[in-house]
Amino acid sequence: MRRRAIFRLIAGAPLLSWARAASTQPALKTVGVLIALPETDPSVSARVAGFETGLREFGWSAARNIQLRYRFAEDTAQLPRLAGELVASAPDVLVASSGIVAAALLRHTRTIPIVFVTTSDPIGDGLVTSLARPDGNVTGFTNSLSTMGGKWVELLKQAVPDMSRVGMIFNPDTAPGGGSYFLASFEEAAKSNALRGDTLPVRTREEIEPTLTTLGRAPGPGLIVVPDNFSALHRDLIIAQATKQRIPAIYPFRYFAAEGGFMSYGVDLPDLYKRTASYVDRLLKGAKVIDLPVQASSRLHLVINLRAAKALGLTLSRTMLARADEILE
């Protein structure tokens, strides 16, 4: 061994570096990334940028030592096919943008490590059995505790003190626990704030408009949008209808507010992409999934869109404004 090292020294550095470059060429790592949003979705570029920035911080460069295979689903129906394709290309690590994407991938492989960028209830959705020691091939980051259902109600009530009725919209097919995950805290908070709390399950895009139209006709309406791939996919319609029906709504991610939503309270998604990169790095370097606990995001951001507030004819209290981490003018 030492002799070989000495030989290397004698053989000369230029030859050595050339040999190393040649030898690492075939060892190019591949990472499959499946995002359940169209490639044209405005939030996609931020997600990809966050992920690749994170990878670069760990020394992975798409041009040099890593190959990133992105697949974008315009519809959740496409997920099984795309997941199959991606798994068939046998990447070293798979990245799932959300819980349902991870589930789709998990149906095709039980060996390739899968990192989900964000989901709410990985245990409830059957992705992992333990957060501290995931014993399958899936790990990742969570965004919202179940108590967040109550928190959203509280925050929305603080922002809109004269709200009397609050609805929680979700797709039972894609939402955590079929929509039940946040339900308890939601209902409790509604009760303690003397609000009428309604669950608004929708399964298709088409159902969104009538549902919100109905909610908008009620006095003092409010809307909770839970983190759900469905709501992310159809946020344009949800935001547009909420604005149209003059319903103050609170969303789980900043980009909802950035795209016209009234306010958002939740994790920093691009930050989660960066943290996903750290897990991808460790997995590519040989770490086991079981050693990578499912981590909760510790940063929650309150974002208020003042223009949307103005459109809704709302004036925000001093406390509310003080509480906001970001105010969009």
Partner: peptide
């Protein structure tokens, strides 16, 4: 940001208020 919850306890040892990032105050 590191503080997730804050509780105020009076001099007699009774918790009077609790503010949380993730749960209802």
């Amino acid at each position: 940001p590191a503080i997730t919850e804050l509780a105020r306890i009076d001099a007699t040892g009774h918790e009077r208020a609790r503010v949380s990032r993730i749960a209802v105050d």
